[in-house]
Design a protein around this nucleic acid. Sequence first.
DNA 1: CAGTATCCATTTTGATACTG
DNA 2: CAGTATCAAAATGGATACTG
Lengths: 123, 123
Amino acid sequence: MSKRISQSSLKAPSFKRSDCPLACALDIVGDKWSLLIVRDLLFGRSRYSGFLDAGEGLPSNILASRLRSLEKAGLVRKMRDQAQPTHQAYQLTESGLDLSAVIVALVHWSRINIPGTRPSQIG
Amino acid sequence: MSKRISQSSLKAPSFKRSDCPLACALDIVGDKWSLLIVRDLLFGRSRYSGFLDAGEGLPSNILASRLRSLEKAGLVRKMRDQAQPTHQAYQLTESGLDLSAVIVALVHWSRINIPGTRPSQIG
DNA sequence: CAGTATCCATTTTGATACTG
DNA sequence: CAGTATCAAAATGGATACTG
């Protein structure tokens, strides 16, 4: 017998504490995984399994939850893979692409301020 | 009878998954509160009670935990308040100040991409 | 194989009461 | 004022099992 109630057993993080633009942004990407998924998308990964293999050990249930919340927030779009139509592919929307500036700023900060950061490669 | 073991009942978030500069940065500021505290420091707040009153309803135990981890990561310094030496004051280090670029990028993104964001004020 | 879902232990959170 | 302590609730992380 199959369970039919829950769309997913894992809920996305809560949403919108205030109208401060910074707090609003953090309600969407203020966690340890979302920007790493955006990073992967920027660097050409587009498949579920690709995100899982990215190296930081993102668990599959967390990945599913994050993809849902990023999609709901309009940063990511899911579609059929052009090259392999049997597969799904994720891609950034305009809004998601705009996050590259945030990622660049974080990487720049990290390079200067965190010792032991990898010198020449993101991802 | 008093408990004496725990320095604090609340632990700071875990640390350093990989050597990717983005992941390293997110291990430090990749949560919903740390950058809001940095924002407050940038905008002139410096006291524990000031952070609590900032408006987003940051709980005091989370604040204590975040201040500890930001201090440990070298972004924040605790000292005696110059004006009122009976009080403590927090201030950003150079490293913490450098995060302003990240905050600017996030606010800019938010203004463009999140409807309902407050038009003319951070904080 | 790609993608989801479920179970369960551990961590983190949020709210509030409490202490020096 | 500046934190700590307590505790319930929620999120996380792994492992694993299910579906098409």
